[in-house]
């Protein structure tokens, strides 16, 4: 008993001393934080994806409040977040733009694309391309080793069974990280409202494309002719659909002999 009481007293006393010192320091050296920053941060999704170009949501919030970042800078949050931020800051909400989602612009999977050689090195698209220009006979197609899968901050990309990644467009937050990491640039940010896209990147001549892939664009121009609103143009042996003109009528899908447009 005689030991416990002094121990409680001394420890309790120390606790009291340090506690009050900390309380004093918290008052004295408090850093003033703009309450708006906290409110903006609250409004953000908190994925820290970096799509805005800043280190994370916290830094973006600071920059928005300081007026250095645009109100609509958070692409994953879209119009909803932008209007919330606008409300907090008393600024005008930017006009809603179409949501962009990532898309693999290649259909050459294990069945349809011709393989030049077997690659069994480090499972990285970039490394595979260093080895004899990649395993695919096509010089433009998806290598299928999943750099995009690893880059996605929200696990919206999964590797399909046929070594072609599958993107969950509902989960995609439009951060564009997959697009930036893809060494073959076969990922594009496309208008989520557009239903039909040319899923090929090959700028090779049609004759060559036929020999290396079953689903590559051969630049036959049938889709260009079929399109009633002239949304498709043919450049460098490759058709592209302007999704802002496209009416989603589906004529081109019918016309494409190679099922490249889906």
């Amino acid at each position: 008993m005689s030991i416990i009481i002094p121990a409680i007293l001394s420890l309790g006393g120390l606790g009291l001393l340090f506690g009050s010192a900390l309380a004093f320091a918290a008052q004295k050296f408090a850093v003033e934080v703009d309450p708006k920053v906290e409110m903006v941060q609250e409004a953000l999704l908190g994925a820290n994806c970096g799509a805005c170009g800043y280190a994370g949501c916290a830094q973006f919030a600071e920059e928005v409040v300081a007026g250095k970042a645009p109100v609509g800078g958070c692409t994953p949050g879209g119009a909803k977040t932008a209007s919330k931020i606008a409300e907090i800051l008393g600024a005008e909400a930017p006009s809603a733009e179409a949501r962009l989602v990532a898309q693999i612009v290649c259909l050459g999977d294990g069945d349809t694309a011709k393989i030049k050689h077997i690659y069994d090195g480090a499972p990285d698209c970039k490394a595979a391309l260093m080895f004899g220009g990649g395993p695919l006979a096509c010089g433009f197609g998806c290598v299928g080793l999943g750099n995009c899968v690893r880059a996605c901050p929200v696990q919206a990309i999964a590797m399909g069974s046929n070594s072609l990644p599958i993107i969950d467009v509902n989960a995609c937050i439009s951060c564009g990280k997959c697009k930036n990491i893809c060494p073959r640039q076969v990922i594009e940010m496309v208008n989520a409202n557009g239903l039909h896209h040319v899923r090929c990147k090959s700028r090779d001549k049609g004759k060559h494309v036929r020999t290396v892939c079953e689903r590559g664009c051969i630049a036959c121009n049938l889709c260009v002719k079929a399109c009633p609103v002239e949304a498709i143009r043919m450049e460098n042996n490759l058709a592209t659909i302007d999704s802002y003109i496209c009416t989603n009528c589906g004529e081109c899908v019918e016309a494409c002999p190679r099922t490249t447009i889906v």
């Binding site: 090195g121 480090a122 499972p123 990285d124 970039k126 490394a127 260093m130």
Partner: peptide, 8 residues
């Protein structure tokens, strides 16, 4: 594949 990664 450590050395392969380093080379990359």
């Amino acid at each position: 594949p450590l050395v392969q990664w380093i080379r990359m």
